[in-house]
Computed example of a mutant assay.
Amino acid sequence: MARLLLLCVLFSMLLHSQAAAPARPRYLDGFLANGNFEQGPRPSNLKKTVIIGKYSLPKWEISGMVEYVSGGPQPDGFYFAIPRGAHAARLGNEATISQTINLKPGRVYSLTFAATRTCAQDEVLRVSASNKSSDLPIQTLYSSDGDTYAFAFVATSSRTKVTFQNPGVQEDPACGPLLDAIAIKEMPPLRYTKGKTPLQHITNTCIIIV
């Protein structure tokens, strides 16, 4: 009887400890919707590789000359190495793609994406979110998987539009960066560590907010 009572007490303590344990916060971490561009437009919304229609690329809004390309040799003699999967988006001069996502105001988020140059000319990718933007020179040409970039920002509202744009610095309007593997990560709130100054703590997190 005493052994049974002891088991009941231990079981009760176990249930209480599990119930009392604070729930671990869940942070946003993963691809944006169709962030790897494996969901393509309908064949009727493609003119060769050029996407026709503002909402023809699933989960994205586009403007200008946006191409839906596959990896491998291209008809013009180029070779496209797709960073992730089999497909990617190519932005011509002044073309944009954007997506509106749900975020938590005041939180820090990091966008990561793969990009590669497709022509032997200067190419730039402009990234914008929450009234912040940055122009990133795309250096890699014919890379096996493209370069990986990161863009950090503080969300100013619960609905935030993330935009990628080719500002148009190329002589050939069809040239532009190849974009793929777009993901977002919510950065956990900074916590003070005893024995460190706030500056040391922020430096150790390696977070850059633009």
Rank of each mutant, 00 (worst) to 15 (best):
E186F: 01
P43W: 06
D180E: 05
P173V: 11
W60A: 01
L199S: 14
G72V: 07
A155F: 06
A95F: 11
S144Y: 01
L136F: 11
E38D: 07
P167Q: 09
L10S: 09
V66I: 02
S98R: 15
A174I: 02
G71K: 11
M187V: 15
Q99W: 07
K47F: 10
D135L: 09
R24F: 05
C119D: 08
L15F: 02
I138T: 05
Y192M: 13
H87A: 13
Q170M: 08
D122V: 12
L57E: 03
L32S: 02
V50D: 00
L57T: 03
Q39N: 09
G72L: 09
A155Q: 05
Q39V: 07
S157M: 01
E94Y: 07
I82M: 10
P73H: 03
L103S: 13
L111Q: 01
S133D: 08
R42C: 08
A115C: 09
A181P: 02
A86N: 15
L111C: 04
E67P: 00
K54S: 14
A21R: 13
F113K: 04
N131P: 01
A23F: 12
A129S: 12
V124Q: 04
M187T: 15
L141Y: 14
K54C: 08
E61W: 05
L111M: 06
T156H: 06
D145Y: 14
K48V: 05
G176P: 02
T112G: 01
Y55K: 15
T203L: 12
G92H: 11
A183C: 09
G92N: 11
K48D: 08
P105V: 06
P198G: 07
